[in-house]
């Protein structure tokens, strides 16, 4: 067991470092992409092409005074940003970056991710509730309704894939897919992939589903009152969450580290970046949906579709078992 323990420890350190790094890089990428979409350069003064801009911003955030509104609950108020960030670190552990390159090789990796991903909503609720702000409260209420709703289709679409693969271990699921795109699960489960992507946007509160922080309605929603690193942690957690959902999507649907010519981890990172870029493009293209529409999309469309998909998948899986035909 000590070997496993050391492995997790190394993994945790690597994850902590990489989450910070990914956060910085993603801030830069998002701003740069947003800039180019809007036909402006984005950050370009600090460092070559502005690559050091996120670092400067992070320093600024760290240097800022942390303050708490009058009447806020001090414990919950400061617990919230920390609580939003810590579970995200755990989410990285079972992600298979390459063949055998994962911090925690367990059979229930997928379950662990889904379980801890559900924890982030608690931090949003606490943050919004504890800051004694009406906008924060409304944002928190939205966050809970949204996250709870979108977790279900997310879960159902993921289940469909693990039915096919017969495992909840992400590495096993990846190994079940082939090198070429037509061997990937997206070919057999396109509907599940679509549902997954939409639910992931909802789950990570990304535009067009960024209702909990809809700034034209709720100023900044649940993090209205947070300043400095309190806000910074929420921010970082959002990007880290994005990376996690994209990584899971890559592992489940896009063949994970599998790919021709290039080594596994490169493929993995490439696929994740592509998905992230797509999410960034969504944000800078679409208007925000309304809150009731958000729930309508979930309960009236994604849920039934996901259930149907799951039923059909299990039917075919059983059929395949009976006829002994691999498909």
């Amino acid at each position: 067991m000590p070997a496993e323990f050391i492995r997790i420890l190394i993994g945790l350190v690597a994850v902590a470092v990489s989450v910070g790094l990914i956060g910085l890089v993603m801030v830069w990428v998002e701003r740069k992409v947003a800039g180019h979409i809007q036909r402006r350069p984005g950050p370009y003064e600090v460092g070559p092409n502005g690559v050091l801009q996120p670092l400067a911003d992070a320093l600024k955030l760290v240097g800022k005074q942390l303050f708490m509104p009058d009447g806020a609950d001090p414990i919950l108020y400061w617990l919230a940003p920390v609580l939003s960030f810590i579970p995200v670190l755990l989410l990285f552990l079972p992600l298979p970056v390459g063949d055998g390159l994962m911090a925690l090789d367990i059979n229930l990796g997928l379950l662990l991710i889904l379980a801890f991903a559900g924890l982030t909503v608690l931090s949003l609720l606490l943050g919004g509730w504890a800051s004694n702000n009406k906008y924060g409260l409304l944002g928190a209420a939205r966050a809970v309704a949204q996250s709870v709703a979108y977790e279900i289709p997310l879960l159902l679409s993921v289940l469909a894939v693990s039915f096919v693969a017969g495992s909840l271990n992400l590495a096993e699921v990846v190994k079940g897919q082939g090198t070429w795109p037509w061997n990937w699960n997206i070919m057999t489960q396109p509907l599940a992939f679509l549902i997954y992507i939409v639910s992931a946007l909802g789950e990570t509160n990304r535009a067009p589903f960024d209702l909990p922080e809809a700034e034209s309605e709720l100023t900044a929603g649940f993090h209205t009152e947070y300043s400095g690193m309190g806000f910074g942690l929420f921010f970082l957690a959002e990007y880290a969450n994005m990376v996690v959902v994209c990584s899971v999507a890559t592992a489940l649907f896009l063949g994970g580290w599998q790919g021709p010519v290039l080594p596994g981890p490169v493929w993995f990172v490439l696929k994740v970046s592509l998905l992230m870029l797509l999410m960034v493009f969504f944000r800078w293209t679409y208007p925000r949906v309304r809150f009731d529409q958000l729930l309508t999309i979930n309960w009236k469309w994604l849920m039934p579709l996901a259930v149907l998909n799951l039923l059909a998948t299990s039917f075919f899986v059983k059929l395949a078992q009976f006829t002994e035909v691999r498909w």
Binding site: A34, I37, Q38, R39, R40, A207, P208, D210, A214, S216, R283, W284, T285, Y286, P287, R288
Partner: peptide, 16 residues
């Protein structure tokens, strides 16, 4: 207006 509705990009094109 589009900014109110949560779309960030149109205002840049409009201002162009």
């Amino acid at each position: 207006y589009l900014l109110d509705l949560g779309a960030f990009t149109p205002i840049m094109y409009a201002f162009d």
